[in-house]
């Protein structure tokens, strides 16, 4: 309970503070090109790293380990996203491939 409250409060406060930096100090200070570049790249690196670890290890601590059905599902979903398919196709593709492979007995 406390954990969740702190998580939501910390995230909400931190995110709003980040949103407010530009509007409040923007007249006096602007980030340089290196900082701007880092602000662009870091989120992408983190999202991809999280996608990779969640694919390999599973999303919850107790279903850990490499899982062929999940791996195939994520590969299909990621492939669809790569070729700019709509989000619906990405979600359904990943879920259906994984569910289908499990239905025919692949873990």
């Amino acid at each position: 309970m406390m954990f969740w409250l702190l998580l939501v409060a910390g995230l909400a406060g931190g995110t709003y503070a980040l949103r407010l930096v530009g509007p409040t100090v923007g007249a006096r200070w602007q980030p340089g090109p290196t900082v701007t570049r880092l602000l662009e790249v870091a989120p992408v690196v983190l999202l991809i790293a999280l996608a990779a670890t969640a694919t390999v290890a599973g999303e919850s601590a107790d279903d850990g380990g490499l899982n062929p059905a999940r791996l195939a599902g994520v590969a299909v979903g990621a492939g669809l996203a790569w070729w700019r398919a709509p989000m619906l196709a990405v979600v359904l593709g990943a879920a259906l491939i994984t569910a289908g492979l499990r239905a025919i007995g692949l873990a």
Binding site: P43, D63, N67, A81
Partner: peptide
């Protein structure tokens, strides 16, 4: 959730959210 393949949805969405920024080879 496993039977529905939901564990594959989270990584797939994370990838799709990052996709628009993956155009540049450096990124």
């Amino acid at each position: 959730t496993a039977a529905l393949g939901l564990d594959a949805v989270l990584p797939a969405i994370l990838f799709a959210l990052a996709r628009p920024h993956l155009g540049a080879p450096a990124v």
